[in-house]
Design a protein around this nucleic acid. Structure first.
Lengths: 129, 129
DNA sequence: TATATCGGTTTCCTAAGAGATACCAGATAG
DNA sequence: CTATCTGGTATCTCTTAGGAAACCGATATA
């Protein structure tokens, strides 16, 4: 999101496109923050407490490369705080910032809709095997 | 989502992984329905009224291939209704189903968070140029 | 001296997402 | 007879997301 906003998306021509961008852009911003394979698992893991890098790596099964990338993004967006302890070997702890709590409502909305949608589309099949 | 659920995601080992999947899977489901470049633009366009295929194509600037794919998915998920009129040439109209209204709350939550997040991260820069 | 730990980074690779372009059949308008 | 409209498909290409594996320097343990 932040670096540049050349993201030119068109829209129905009832409304001019800046008007439309104003509707789309924030949704895109939020979605960019949550989509991808690992953001939600990481955030949910961190709601249960602080974790060190290798702990996250092992526990959610993400490769170090992805984990490093995702954590950097989350930190840039002020959702995660990174703390280095100069123990030996160094340990680095990751925790959610208080601001991250603001995502709660969004994630809840997603989960609620996802739950009822699954029920609607597969009424009697396997209940989350 | 629907076809198969082999999507094995791990999770912090405080909770067993089925427990954790129960948290993650619905969020994934919802996110799958909304992420990607075109779902939201299409849905928002259709909230302003019915559109024919070529109209959507021209107005939101999506290629026919992608549009076709996205509309099929939305229809499969009962969010969009497709109606064929045997005028000449045939016209096909797409509209949101009443069920699609259930997404309203989710999209609003995303937009609200996106708006305040943008303000937080870029307090005084360009206001959606 | 060898091995393991820590938090990453680097390189290589594949699969998926997405764009560009051409094309189709049927009918009508010029 | 040709061009144009419709709702799409098919093919080719490029870009991005993501995984696998090896590696790094510093330190501790065996």
């Amino acid at each position: 999101m932040c670096p540049k906003e050349t993201d030119e998306q068109k829209c129905p021509d009832q409304h001019n496109s800046t008007e439309c961008a104003k509707h789309l852009m924030p949704v895109r911003d939020a979605l960019d923050m949550l989509s991808g394979k690992w953001k939600i698992p990481i955030i949910i893991a961190l709601t249960y407490g602080n974790y060190r890098f290798k702990e996250l790596h092992r526990q959610i099964g993400i490769t170090p490369k992805m984990l490093s990338k995702e954590l950097k993004e989350l930190e840039m967006h002020q959702l995660v705080k990174r703390t280095v302890y100069d123990s030996t070997p160094v340990t680095v702890s990751y925790e959610l910032t208080p601001y991250a709590a603001s995502l709660r409502h969004v994630i809840d909305a997603l989960r609620d809709w996802g739950l009822q949608h699954r029920k609607r589309l597969m009424p009697k099949s396997k209940p989350a095997a």
